[in-house]
Nucleic acid binder design. Structure first.
Lengths: 234, 234
DNA sequence: CGCTGTTTCGATAACCTATAGAAAGTCTCG
DNA sequence: CGAGACTTTCTATAGGTTATCGAAACAGCG
């Protein structure tokens, strides 16, 4: 298979369409991403991807043996919120601030992702051997968030609650709101990615905080924390 | 088309499989429902539905011209939480209690539905002319919940918040949690329908209440309210 | 110039939804 | 009781999808 040559090679049978820019693999991913954003994964056919990339339907299978492999290749970024959670779980800042930062970052990432979270999950579930990393990442994010909540409960910042259940609720809220951002229901107000991210983190924190008036301070603290941490990585 | 005869008629060409119980329409819906629950809508083929119902693939199209029509027929129940919201929106009970009752009922209904909410929404979106009722119902539920929240804010039961955004968050949480109930992610704790329903309503109320210690009383009040209202209907 | 490796193409299999028209019964009415 | 209408099911097939196979078209190298 062609996964060996990342660069735009000159060998091989020429395309009927003539055009051959950079690496076909990257080009396919780029065109597929645009189509997934516009129409969703299931509604995008290999023929359309091929046409956009300038080759025939069956030629795409030279680079990606299955349609899901394109999605898999497209996934290998999108781990910011997990990295942030890994960085913040052992940090010394107030748990509420760290929790807000992680939840907000996760919501932003879900909104910015080219694919609806649920559509992604559906594909991952049908191909567990290829998307094991997805479930592992999700499990680890869950564990880290749960740990931060537990710290907050222990320290008294947060009210007494089951950290595991609260985490499930918090992540579910992120995922559900992501959907409303991505596909606004007719007749309802539309939200920006920033809107839903703040709404999600605000709601979860408000449900867990002992004193709701601490929220504004937590919000600004979390923004600062996220800024520092994103600077660290680059 | 055959929608005229609801009863099990004796006319028409006999089936190869011989068996012909009650109304074919109801039988198809029943078998399709079981398959949708087991495998989901997209993964269930018309051939499987036909085989379960005891006829050939194309014969199903005599009763349902499109696959989505089966889903549509299957939907025409499942409006309990909307009815409860309609009944409670103008009621005189405390807004927090009414809100809890409606959110809890909605979550229960989402969990009990034969189909994943998001899968349903996907189909509805692809066939807006057939599923207009779905969006109307959703919009009305949103409006009613929003109104209850506004009442609570005005009366001082709930903290100051945007009722519309809070409603979006509350319903998103229901939908997101429904998914975790229906398809537990590997390695994570599983929840019962009661678990997620209580978790969802608890979380939303905790995020909106002025004093979190009022929650237990609200919970029991909402249970009583829902019990009274479900008795009224039958 | 011919051999090898790389990339694309055309043809095709297997599966899906949906349609068309023939076939096989019951029902109605003279 | 028999002819035609009506109802329901069937077979066959069109057109779309993912994915596979082997041939074809090129570059580079000895």
């Amino acid at each position: 298979m062609g996964s060996g040559k990342p660069a735009g090679s000159t060998a091989g049978r020429p395309r009927l369409s003539g055009a051959a820019g950079g690496s076909p693999r990257q080009e396919i991913i780029r065109e597929a991403t645009a189509l997934f954003i516009a129409k969703g994964y299931a509604e995008t056919t290999m023929s359309e991807i091929a046409r956009s990339a300038g080759l025939r339907q069956s030629s795409v299978y030279y680079w990606f043996a299955r349609k899901e492999h394109i999605l898999q290749a497209l996934l290998e970024e999108n781990r910011d919120s997990l990295q942030l959670a890994q960085a913040l779980e052992p940090a010394v800042d107030p748990a509420a601030v760290r929790l807000y930062a992680v939840l907000h970052a996760d919501a932003v990432q879900l909104c910015a992702s080219p694919l609806d979270f649920y559509e992604f999950e559906r594909v991952a579930r049908s191909q567990p051997q290829n998307f094991g990393a997805f479930f592992e990442d999700y499990g680890e994010l869950h564990r880290l968030v749960s740990s931060i909540i537990r710290q907050g409960v222990d320290s008294g910042e947060l009210r007494t609650a089951d950290p595991d259940a609260a985490t499930t609720a918090a992540l579910s809220l992120n995922e559900g709101l992501q959907r409303h951002y991505r596909q606004p229901l007719p007749g309802l107000r539309t939200y920006t990615a920033d809107d839903v991210s703040a709404l999600s983190a605000d709601t979860t924190l408000a449900s867990l905080l002992r004193t709701p008036d601490a929220l504004p301070g937590i919000r600004t603290g979390a923004a600062a924390l996220a800024a520092v941490n994103s600077r660290d990585e680059s």
